[in-house]
Design a protein around this nucleic acid. Structure first.
Lengths: 340, 340
DNA sequence: GTGAAAGCGCTAACAC
DNA sequence: GTGTTAGCGCTTTCAC
């Protein structure tokens, strides 16, 4: 089917392209009657404007990019859902890019966002990313970037995070209150600032309770599942294994369960576990998993909302906003009872 | 920063816009030396072409749309990952749209794809969708649509599915071999063809084994979590509750576990459960969940690959392809032992 | 109220 | 090898 455009509509109606364009935009300049005719034909021929012609002319794409490390994990899936929802409601389109935890890919993707493809970017940095120059570069081109969850403090832009320090503190304090003596924090990257805040919260909670440094281990698991498994296995098979674990990301919980099962370590009697996780399986695991649950969909919505607000005002000065949403410590059976 | 375009490059180099354009495309017409100068300046000024100007001219956007009902669930997340990966490798961009199971939204989204925004569409239909006119309409505009997982048989286009009938048959046969007597299939929509194939597989497996119709119930849970929970609860609390369940989608497993736990029904001793699911928590549940696992990432890759192949040949006639990938029945503890 | 015309940044046909 | 030109489909200013 040949595509219908303004010109074909105009010809059919005996009007000029300009008039048809204005009529479709419901401009005050055009008579009611003409608007009616135009709209009727447009509908009949199923006219939709060519978005790229419009973008080219208006220098506005009505699309945003969402750049995230992965999508397999519940957190990012839920965040994307939140983003898509507000984008759809505002008539924006959402391009999705995965960095697969590579800062190189991340840089290239942002570079490709600089020339009109998108009006703005929502970014959660890769675990390798340690510089914010690529972000600043993009913003030099007047493309706002809003960071969420995995942010870079130094980047001069809006950021949506959760209370990483506080929630880690609370999770750790909870373990201490359950009488755990030997705590371990399972980390997945020593690069991510978000992770470092959680580590600080972990350490401070224990320092406030006069734990010795040896009782506050931070174990660097890698991002690779198999390696992480090995490292956790070593930890749990060792003579001085911890009796309380704070796992920093969702994917670390399954290996802990599996290994405890294999080694006949009873959760929660011998080991209490709390995990930063958004999985819907938490209540159904045996024992049910105590989680720090991030408001993932809300974060996505907040990030998108701030980005759209920025775009709306982007004539004026854009004041970076910083939003910190609270995570919820959901206590379940994996931390129940007192450690002995 | 003012954006650099072909014109500014050309002026700076004392060349014409056309020459610069060709040089950047590494055209054979341009001298090595000129190419060198152009490339050097382009790199120095960090030039990237305006994609929409190019799209408008070439009538090709190098972007595709992925339209799916949801993204919270592991299947679609993994599928999207597969799609994104091949798109990235081919230099394509991926727009994502969620229908939230509304065929109305789905129709509107496809309508918006008709005017150049995308070169092709990957679609998994909503559970409400019972007509394929919106798909045909889009294809009338020469935008290929490839369906995956939730397909519409009648749509005259390429489809990627899994062996829904076979895998449901195998899952059900497995329950029968474990000596289950009273089987139930938990369904989530009576609209989806995929689901109906699974139901047929379920029924046929039992018919082949001479089960009475009363021993082969199909329970229509709704898509709403709370309602589904109630329905499953009624089923499991009833005097003639089943001793074997085939759950047709991932999200039905958690309520079954939760309800069995609450009602003190032992899995697998009193109830065996197999679920179509891609969750990574399956091995870690207690008991570990027997699953029919779809090759989700592979399906995404296959769908994208076929779409790109179609786009490449789209001068010629596009012969619809039908790919059926095998799901894996992964037997775990939730179906172990013999029912009594 | 309507229309003519310029131009967004690029590509491609064609001239030189 | 390089340049000129037309035009993709739309928006917008300005004239009538």
């Amino acid at each position: 089917m040949s595509r219908v455009n303004l010109q074909s509509l105009a010809k059919e109606l005996g009007l000029s392209v300009a008039t048809v364009s204005k009529a479709l935009k419901d401009s005050y300049e055009i008579s009611i009657e003409t608007k009616g005719r135009v709209l009727a034909l447009a509908r009949q021929l199923n006219y939709t404007p060519n978005p790229y012609a419009s973008s080219l002319r208006r220098k506005r794409s009505n699309t945003i990019a969402v750049v995230v490390p992965e999508v397999a994990d519940s957190f990012f899936s839920q965040a994307i859902r939140g983003i898509e929802e507000v984008a759809q409601s505002k008539g924006y389109h959402v391009l999705i890019y995965l960095t697969y935890e590579s800062s190189d890919k991340e840089r290239k993707i942002l570079e490709d966002c600089q020339n009109g493809r998108v009006d703005g970017v929502l970014l959660s940095v890769s675990s390798q990313t340690d510089s914010h120059t690529h972000i600043e570069h993009l913003m030099d081109y007047n493309i706002p970037v809003v960071l969420f969850d995995r942010v870079l403090e130094k980047a001069h832009t809006s950021k949506i995070t959760t209370d990483d320090y506080d929630s880690a503190y609370r999770a750790t304090a909870h373990l201490a209150e359950c009488n755990c003596q030997q705590l371990a924090y399972l980390s997945i990257s020593d690069q991510l600032e978000m992770n470092n805040h959680r580590i600080h919260g972990f350490r401070q909670a224990l320092a406030d309770r006069h734990f010795s440094p040896e009782a506050c281990r931070v174990i660097h698991c890698t991002n690779d599942t198999a390696t992480a498994h090995t490292i956790i296995q070593q930890l749990l098979a060792s003579p001085n294994r911890p009796d309380g674990i704070v796992a920093s990301v969702e994917k670390l919980a399954p290996p802990v369960y599996a290994i405890c099962h294999a080694l006949h370590i009873n959760i929660p009697a011998q080991l209490k576990l709390v995990c930063f996780s958004n999985t819907s399986y938490a209540p159904v695991l045996q024992p049910a998993l105590t989680t720090v649950t991030q408001p993932a969909t809300e974060m996505g919505k907040a990030a998108a909302t701030i980005l759209f607000k920025t775009l709306k005002n982007s004539g004026g000065v854009v004041k970076p906003e910083q939003v910190v949403l609270p995570s919820a410590l959901q206590v379940r059976a994996s931390t129940s009872g007192m450690a002995t």
